[in-house]
């Protein structure tokens, strides 16, 4: 379980997170929503020890993520970020295979290769396995990165806006993988989403941040309602019901 305690983060004189405390329910998909600049991506980066907090701490199963050896955390927690660092001449399989690195530290076993094949299969990438990553479309590349995270086979998976610039068919493949991780594999998935309907469709719980503070938290149905959403984004919403799930429409 992930627990955030009194977390503060300041950069360039701006307070991004302000004394934030929250717990993440294990074994479920939790969506992180909020207006731009609310601190969602920063929170994810802090959880994944990519940044150091100015105050407070984050624990994962009781381990402080910033004080535990990074190699140990990598076996328990995986993150997918919107990172611009280019990926050189790597094939799809090579890149996905890196997901196993925390477990074998450079010497893959037969079991690792099996896990790589399974992950490729899960994301419908088997046909692309030999292609170079820099020849793929944005959606295909995103699927490769999800497969890499799946391969890492950690209890906790953090996804930062995994649906950016994807067409509806690609969104479906990615979100199916997310559902699969939580429902079939019992992983804790925390995903930053901008499209509230994706949150409504896939998340069990929703956490809303605003100005670096916790704004609302609870089951998807209670947070994705007209009053909290209108206050959160300071714009009016209608919330309809579609297939027994909330559907959010901007008014």
């Amino acid at each position: 379980m992930i627990s955030v305690q009194n977390l503060s983060y300041v950069t360039a004189g701006k307070r991004i997170l302000d004394d934030l405390s929250l717990d993440i329910a294990p074994g479920q998909v939790t969506a992180l929503i909020g207006p731009n600049g609310a601190g969602k991506s920063t929170l994810l980066a802090l959880m994944a020890r990519l940044l150091r907090p100015d105050n407070g701490r984050i624990t994962l199963d009781g381990l402080d993520v910033h004080r535990t050896a990074t190699a140990d955390i990598a076996k328990r927690l995986a993150i997918l970020r919107q990172e611009q660092a280019p990926l050189g001449r790597l094939t799809v399989r090579d890149l996905v295979a890196f997901g196993r690195f925390p477990h074998h530290r450079g010497r893959p076993t037969a079991e690792d290769h099996l896990k790589i094949d399974t992950a490729l299969d899960q994301l419908a990438l088997s046909d692309l396995a030999g292609r170079f990553v820099d020849t793929l479309s944005g959606g295909q590349k995103q699927r490769v990165l999800i497969a890499m995270v799946l391969c890492q086979n950690t209890d906790v998976v953090l996804l930062d806006e995994p649906l950016n610039n994807l067409d509806p068919a690609q969104v479906r493949v990615v979100m199916d993988a997310v559902d699969h991780m939580a429902r079939d594999l019992g992983k804790t998935v925390i995903v930053v989403l901008h499209d509230l309907n994706h949150a409504a469709r896939h998340a069990t719980r929703v956490i809303a941040l605003k100005h670096g503070r916790l704004f609302a938290e609870g089951p998807a149905g209670s947070v994705l309602a007209e009053t909290p959403l209108s206050q959160l984004y300071e714009t009016a919403f209608d919330v309809l019901t579609h297939n027994a799930r909330p559907m959010v429409v901007a008014r």
């Binding site: 050896a69 140990d72 970020r81 660092a85």
Partner: peptide, 15 residues
């Protein structure tokens, strides 16, 4: 792993 960039290598457990 280091060649993948700072964030990816931390994610994969490289200091």
């Amino acid at each position: 792993v280091v060649e993948l960039g700072r964030e990816r290598s931390i994610g994969l457990g490289v200091d």
